[in-house]
């Protein structure tokens, strides 16, 4: 029990405290590829700090507008408690896999609702794009996790990780892992799929009316979401190396998260933003891939 509480604290700490560092790391990579000096590694912390220090504008959209950022960050933190990040997940029960997928789709919905409540046409367009993306990409997450679940014959997250660890990769796992990786870019709202925000087209879309602490909450939630998504992907499809020593496992997970985020950033750096129709086409392909993985799993491969 004590250990679980300890892990819960660790998970929350990693998602909350370390997430901005992840963003700072991405910005450093970006600076290197852009041949420029770039901001310091801790810049994202400074940015959040600054945003929190700004006046909290009441904003245009009433209760929903004000609640959305809180709900967004809250759901991410709750999700953190169900996500294994090296060690076992602090909370878990039969079917927690579905709960997690639901929890992870809440941030997107919160962003959408917040955007719609303020009524700016840019936010509206951003929200509708976000909706289309969520509707196409979230099922991929569900299908791939489900695929792993079929193989492991369990819908408990902890089992999925354990199964891959003991049985190694199967064809279905490789396909599902690939599909999940291909949709990661969109889940993390990175180019070429940062279509809902699209600064140069619709001025950060859903966030156009947000500022100060509320914007900081949103941003923080999105950074935290990166940690969760990547950890989830790693734990289910690439759980190695596992030593069984909690500290070492936590650390190795962290290192892996940084490697993946570096990869994600590199992909972001060599791509322009796609149009929503092009992105949806792409994800239809990825969804088909994920379904193929599922089919393989059903066939026992």
């Amino acid at each position: 029990m004590l250990k679980l509480i300890f892990i819960a604290v660790i998970n929350l700490a990693v998602t909350l405290a370390l997430a901005p560092l992840l963003d700072g790391f991405m910005r450093r990579i970006k600076a290197v590829v852009h041949s420029r000096q770039g901001p310091p590694l801790l810049q994202t912390y400074y940015d959040l700090f600054k945003l929190f220090g700004k006046e909290d504008m009441e904003g245009a959209g009433g209760v929903i507008f004000r609640l959305a950022p809180v709900v967004c960050l809250g759901s991410v933190l709750l999700a953190a408690l169900f996500t294994p990040m090296g060690g076992p997940a602090p909370l878990g029960f039969g079917g927690d896999l579905f709960l997690l997928v639901y929890l992870l789709s809440i941030p997107g919905i919160a962003i959408m609702l917040g955007a719609m409540s303020c009524g700016s046409p840019y936010a509206m367009l951003g929200a509708s794009r976000e909706m289309m993306l969520v509707l196409t990409v979230e099922p991929i997450l569900l299908i791939t996790l489900f695929t792993a679940g079929i193989k492991a014959d369990s819908l408990v997250l902890a089992d999925l990780s354990g199964w891959t660890l003991t049985h190694g990769w199967s064809i279905s796992a490789v396909i599902a892992g690939l599909a999940l990786f291909l949709s990661l870019q969109s889940e993390l709202a990175k180019l070429p799929f940062d279509i809902a925000e699209a600064e140069t087209e619709i001025m950060e879309g859903p966030f156009v009316e947000y500022s100060g602490p509320k914007l900081a909450l949103f941003k923080w939630a999105l950074y935290a979401k990166m940690v969760i998504y990547i950890s989830l992907f790693l734990e289910v499809f690439l759980p190695w190396p596992k030593t069984g020593i909690l500290a070492a496992d936590l650390l190795s997970n962290l290192v892996k998260v940084f490697i993946v985020i570096g990869l994600v950033e590199l992909i972001e750096l060599v791509n322009p933003r796609l149009r929503i129709d092009q992105a949806l086409n792409y994800f239809k392909g990825v969804a088909v891939l994920a379904l193929v993985g599922l089919a393989f799993a059903l066939m026992g491969l």
């Binding site: 970006k30 852009h34 041949s35 940062d194 140069t200 060599v270 322009p272 933003r273």
Partner: peptide, 16 residues
């Protein structure tokens, strides 16, 4: 043009 479509690497390199 790169920047407009979100491709900032093109922006930075051609400006370099």
């Amino acid at each position: 043009a790169g920047h407009i479509i979100g491709f900032d690497t093109v922006l930075m390199q051609s400006w370099r």
